[in-house]
Design a protein around this nucleic acid. Structure first.
Lengths: 219, 219
DNA sequence: CTATTATTAGAGTATATACTCTAGCCGTCA
DNA sequence: TGACGGCTAGAGTATATACTCTAATAATAG
């Protein structure tokens, strides 16, 4: 593998583990057993590494959120969207953690992230529409649908942070995978009142699969 | 005013403006035109200042979220809760920004914040119950109510971050006050399907007052 | 084989940051 | 008046961090 790619990979790994703020370029270099000079030969600065990682994240999510325009959406589609998005969130979880700082310190990233958010919101909206056409969700006013899409986005993008802050340090990966799934449960909760009678039971059954089997409220 | 209190106040102000990460203890001292030594006479370290600010935040929110147990809740109560909580969020907006890092670097804060989250979730749940008793909201299963409460919490605590990241740098205070109100709009959106027939119109009218009068989706 | 270019090592630097230390000021109370 | 304790100034320090510079090595093309 090219050194450049190794740097991106190691950075992502370290960022996810320790948080971008706690990972220096020297750490990254040391982790790869290369010299700082080598790292800076491939990247002008730390922001450039982060930006590159963002581009991958963006590409992944954009890929996942493709919406067929020749057919309505099914329950399987919905399940796929939810699982994919939460997987992406997990794979790049450092990103939403220090988001505001990252955007503050990189104009390019700020611009791109804004458009990315926009695309995601539009995609969520289209998914709702597609599910409406598919008879899963009742038709709603555009205004309500948009407000709902935004709420879905807020729940999704805040889920990781909630897990990290509301739980202790007991974030071993198996537990957090389970907990991640609870994010899907939360999103499905948002949809419940809008389900059609035909699909109500099926969606509720699906939702059961993501229910946290833990005694408390998720705390 | 005591120097100690001035330090807390100035820190909060600077943290909110620039983000905790961008504010050093030397900045705070310089801003107050006092010496670093003076600052460290009053606080052992930066974490201590942040912890002190958190205690005030906590006190404020706990105060706002008091729930009368001798009567059901009214629409006015609900409005009060929403406006108060978003005001608190705005006044201490730096806090949720670098939350994960702050909790990572202060064991005390992590513990306290966890309990704080817990209390808030319980309070939201009780508010829903109170509104049910008040005939505003339809009675739901405990499980659904809890999941809804968590969604409300996720929307609320992510609202500031969303504003900061989804909009450009055009965050003058008048605009952001308007935008903050949209957070209430979003929370009310969550409640719509659960309103009783008697209160539906009144809540929808209230919600109208928080509707963003901007052309786009809030981007 | 040689010349040129891409890559890498690793010491080094400028700056920032959290925090310390000592000396002195100032109000109060005996 | 003087001594004492709370408060403050401000220079200073150890460490970290992002990043640079030069020289050496590997790869490649002619």
């Amino acid at each position: 593998m090219k050194t450049r790619d190794k740097i991106i990979l190691a950075s992502l790994e370290l960022f996810n583990e320790r948080g971008e703020r706690n990972v220096t370029t020297n750490h990254i270099a040391a982790h790869l057993a290369i010299s700082p000079g080598n790292l800076y030969y491939h990247f002008r600065n730390k922001s450039d590494i982060i930006y590159e990682i963002f581009l991958e994240y963006e590409k992944l999510v954009d890929y996942y959120l493709q919406i067929p325009d020749d057919r309505p959406l099914t329950l399987d589609d919905m399940k796929f969207y939810l699982e994919s998005v939460f997987d992406g969130l997990w794979a790049y979880r450092f990103f939403h953690r220090d988001l505001e700082f990252l955007l503050d310190s990189d104009e390019r990233l700020r611009q791109d992230y804004r458009e990315f958010t926009n695309r995601c919101l539009v995609a969520i909206d289209r998914i709702f529409l597609g599910l409406t056409d598919g008879g899963v969700i009742q038709r709603q006013s555009e205004e309500l649908r948009r407000a709902m899409s935004l709420n879905v986005w807020l729940v999704i993008t805040n889920w990781m942070a909630f897990l990290k802050t509301a739980h202790g340090t007991e974030m071993d990966s198996s537990l957090s995978t389970k907990r991640m799934r609870q994010g899907i449960y939360q999103v499905l909760t948002l949809e419940i009142p809008y389900l059609t009678a035909e699909f109500y039971d099926r969606v509720m059954t699906l939702r059961e699969q993501y229910r946290p089997d833990l005694p408390d409220n998720g705390i």
